[in-house]
Amino acid sequence: MVDLIGVRKRYGRVVAVDGVSLSVREGEFFTLLGPSGCGKTTTLRLVAGFETPDQGEVRISGQGVNRLPPEGRPIGMVFQNYALFPNMTVFGNVAFPLRLRRLPERVVRRKVGELLEMVHLQGLEGRYPRELSGGQQQRVALARALAREPKVLLLDEPLSALDAKIREELRGELKRLQRETGLTALYVTHDQEEALALSDRIAVMRDGKVEQLGTPQEIYERPSTLFVARFVGIGTLVPGEAREGRFHRDRPWPVQVEGEGRGFILLRPEQLRPHPEGFLEGQVGLATYLGSLLRLEVETEGILLKVDLNPQEEVRAGDRLRLALPEAAPFIKEEA
């Protein structure tokens, strides 16, 4: 549906997007994830048409759109700061793309009604944006983006400006809406949890390049680089060596790995379990109660392991603990 082919974009000496190629499939929720300055927003803006690539091509449903301005592309867009027109009511904002298409007013009214119902804002037609909460404003913005009946919905950190509670609520609704409409969505965020929760596939970006592309499970369970391993989720990277399918530190560990040579295994906190005959013995340095879980930092053999336990467990800082390791773990080779 959306294809980027070797797309490059530079501003002066800074290369913002450095040869990105990827394909978003029809009906897919695709997320560009990365820290600020990784080129994810520029990539989105290249698809929207606010930027033109220096090299490479952007295609939307097979058609090259490099020369088309945003108003000529089959897109709808939601911005981080809502970007509603302050001179128009909720109705006016949602009707704007429809009126631009010169639809009869009767049709405009019906469609705006449907869209507002979809985002649960019936009855607020006459309000101005300044009279709405952040969450409500973003729903209006979403309805406005959908009103254009786009082939691709572009979302630039749409939840970042909202409170945690509203953010989660709207996140669920966004997913539901995308599922129901079957719309292709290209989503930009720096929030890895959001990316994991929403996406069918994720492209993790770094320094203008795609570092890893895969499903949320692939990205979380099998990060291909140290950067992805550190950026997505919580865990501990343990340095060592892979030899004959097993991980070695000072001694061989009972952990299967794929690969050979020096590198790291990634241990997720939920994979480590206290066990009387566990392989590692360590001391709890910090125990943090997080409501749904108890997070420990266990010091063992010169490494600090993060371990998640059931919150009912009675473990305190200073306790000694034996830990069982997972049978296998992702191995990431040391970068040259």
């Binding site: 606010f50 945003p70 108003e71 867009m77 700061n81 970007a83 027109f85 001179n87 983006a145 572009l154």
Partner: peptide, 25 residues
């Protein structure tokens, strides 16, 4: 800048952006 981009993403050409978004605001 943001409003003009939002209008553009809604399908508004330059003249429509000036007339419906920039000038009234």
């Amino acid at each position: 800048r943001l409003l003009m981009e939002a209008a553009q993403a809604s399908g508004a050409g330059l003249w429509q952006r000036l007339r419906h978004v920039l000038l009234p605001n």
